[in-house]
Write a protein that binds this DNA or RNA. Sequence first.
DNA 1: GCCAACGTTGGC
DNA 2: GCCAACGTTGGC
Length: 153
Amino acid sequence: MKFWLLKSEPDTFSYTDLESALNKGTVWDGVRNYQARNILRDDINVGDKAFFYHSSCKEPGIAGLCTVTETNITDPSSLDPTSNYYDPKSSPDNPRWITIRVVADRALNRVITLKELRQHEALSEMVLLNRGRLSVQPVSEEEWETILGLEHS
DNA sequence: GCCAACGTTGGC
DNA sequence: GCCAACGTTGGC
């Protein structure tokens, strides 16, 4: 099992929205960055865990945990001409954007903010803190445990 | 709203 | 294949 961090803008889709989706969860659509797509397509497996990170908001940080329940999904928005994420270069026969389904696991008892993450030496190598713009990124097991250890501190 | 970082596009 | 122009992300 591996660990990941998924970014979402809470004004668009928040951790609470994921919880509302119950066991159905959500298809992680709209990723249009090849590096992130490659991670979704090649590296993430069913059963992996991810932090749900709120970006572009008042208090950027990790809001909850989720679990990957399905992989190798063609991003439906890429094939929908009415979607903002429509990509005419993608097709059902030759899909360009592949993604995953996640379900909510549990909310953290508080949002662990980006500001707080920056204060811990053990997290100084986190992708989030060094290549901030990647929207799907790996988290090491050590980083995962360190961050969960902050929750009740 | 600003702007730094960085990804993408397209002319050559 | 280079690289300038442009667009996007996302913290502040």
